[in-house]
Amino acid sequence: MVAQGLEKRFGDFTAVAGIDFSISRGESFGFLGPNGAGKTSTMRMVACMSPHTGGQLSVLGMDPRTSGSTIRSRIGLVPQQDSLDDELTVEDNLYLYGRYFDLPKRLIRERAVRLLEFAQLTERAKDKVEPLSGGMKRRLTIARSLISEPELLILDEPTTGLDPQARHLLWDRLYRLKSQGVTLVITTHYMDEAEQLCDRLVVMDKGRIVAEGSPRALIEQHSTREVVELRFGLDQQHQGATAIADLAERIEVLPDRVLLYVHDGDAAVAEVHRRGLLPESSLVRRSTLEDVFLRLTGRSLVD
């Protein structure tokens, strides 16, 4: 999949402002960014559901504008909102989705058995979709997208709104797909998800790509080895931050805590205490993509 100067406008509003990326077969590629960064618009274009308004896009070597239906027959889409057919049962959702792909009935029935197993929904096969839990619906949506055995699977915010247990189960399922050679394209605003699942990713903000690389490389390039999180009492954040600004390469003051970007976290904490400051809590952790993102999008209150 190759995009050059890809652009999406809705009237005066530009959702995607000319982005370049290329994704190769078997790769697991992430789009990371906050809500409104243009990720979903990009996914809809890539899934041939929304015509691009500028630039070039080629999916599976074809042009979405002329071969949309053919391309869609070879990809699977997991949209941000589950969009399951609430009026039908779990099983019928899988069955009819397969029929939309014009697959023969017997083949769909065979695959449905395996996919229900995969999604851990075998026992709920005959139930209506509506009362299922959020995690179950998400797994069913993913199972449904696999009914056509796609070469390319597009997942828009696959785990948003799920509890931690459900997320880990989903990650496991996606990991297994990846190991079977399915190309994954994932958008997320969860940094840990991007780190877990993506070989390579781009960081998007306001319709543009602001960085590209593997999770590890991005962290090394844009952050320090460790981060100290300090929590001060009400109204003492700014004073505290000012007093220790010189200890770190970079400092971020968030509404509820102060982040110190340092090489050695424990040493920094010791120095904070030595200066007679007593934060309510302190935590030393490794840098994550969250820190990279904070750095890149400037969504911070640097003093």
Partner: peptide, 14 residues
Amino acid sequence: ISKVYDTMLATPLD
């Protein structure tokens, strides 16, 4: 509301 058509458009249907 139910967005059934959006789902269909993710498949070869147009």
